[in-house]
């Protein structure tokens, strides 16, 4: 109900009203953030917490100013790794899911392996990949891809199979071919499931890239986190963490926007 009201009020000539509307919607969140930051600042001041232990928000803000260029330079490799990992991991997962849905044998053969790979902690795989691929960009992309891979595979298989027997009966009465059923029904019905997984992947791929950078790297936000920690540069550490979070949130938002563009209908049974 409230949703429709907002959509109708978001006409171009009512931009200002729409903005005011959005602000009214968001103010509790904004107020909460400001409140928490103030609280944090007061604690640091009040208890004279040393900067190397926990910097105040103001100091973190200063780190953004002073080390802006360092942050910027290390932001790009991480974005690149996370994005490529996201694309490869999900692409492989989607293709594999399509294969599984077409071949029971393939599913029986490879699904257990996929489950096994998923049970290995990513933090344990990272050193192995660094040994194999060196400390370039490749192991980071692979780890980001690995971390995206499994949720997407599971959800995509579930989505492609989430076609009711009645719908399949309908398609059979219409003498639809397997490829028609695939393109007209299965793909569409899998989209909500796929996007549920892509939203997870959009944040975990950043985690994957950063974890990989911890193991062996001299560039990227992960490397910067390690460096700042060892040098007790707490403000820079916090600023780096915020940058990483910002990256994850941006990717998440992009996926969410794509989702609302592509899926206009409500899926009833996606969790």
């Amino acid at each position: 109900m409230a949703d429709t009201a907002h959509r109708t009020s978001a006409l171009p000539n009512q931009g200002l009203f729409a903005f005011a509307d959005r602000l009214r919607d968001k103010w509790p969140a904004i107020a909460a953030v400001i409140g928490l930051l103030t609280f944090w600042q007061l604690i640091v001041w009040g208890f004279s917490v040393p900067t190397y232990m926990a910097p105040s928000p103001v100091e973190v803000l200063n780190a953004f100013r002073q080390d802006g260029w360092t942050l910027w330079a290390n932001f790009w490799p991480t974005l690149f790794e996370a994005l490529l990992g996201f694309i490869f991991g999900n692409l492989v997962a989607i293709l594999l899911a399509v294969w599984f849905v077409h071949s029971r044998t393939a599913e029986r053969a490879f699904y257990p392996i996929a489950v096994f790979i998923n049970t290995i902690p990513i933090i344990a795989v990272a050193p192995i990949l660094v040994l194999i691929f060196g400390n370039g960009i490749a192991p980071k992309i692979i780890i980001a891809a690995l971390i995206c891979f499994f949720p997407t595979l599971v959800n995509m298989v579930r989505g492609l199979k989430a076609v009711t027997p009645a719908t399949l009966d309908l398609m059979r009465v219409l003498s639809a071919s397997q490829s028609e059923i695939f393109w007209k029904v299965r793909i569409q019905s899998s989209l909500p499931f796929l996007f549920a997984a892509l939203k997870i992947a959009s944040t975990t791929c950043v985690i994957g890239a950063i974890v990989a950078e911890w193991i062996g790297s001299n560039f990227g936000l992960g490397a910067l986190i390690i460096e700042a920690t060892y040098n007790f540069r707490a403000p820079l550490l916090y600023a780096t963490v915020f940058t990483a979070a910002l990256l994850a949130v941006s990717l998440f938002s992009l996926v969410s926007i794509a989702e609302t563009r592509l899926i206009k209908w409500k899926a009833s049974d996606v969790h």
Binding site: T164, A166, T167, D169, L170, V173, L174, S175, K184, V185, Q188, S189, L191, I263, K264, W265, K266, A267, S268
Partner: peptide, 17 residues
């Protein structure tokens, strides 16, 4: 195959998208 008949199910079985 020749579309001589159509079937109407208990649920409408419309494609929701």
């Amino acid at each position: 195959r020749e579309r001589n008949f159509s079937f109407v199910f208990q649920d409408a079985t419309l494609l929701p998208w």
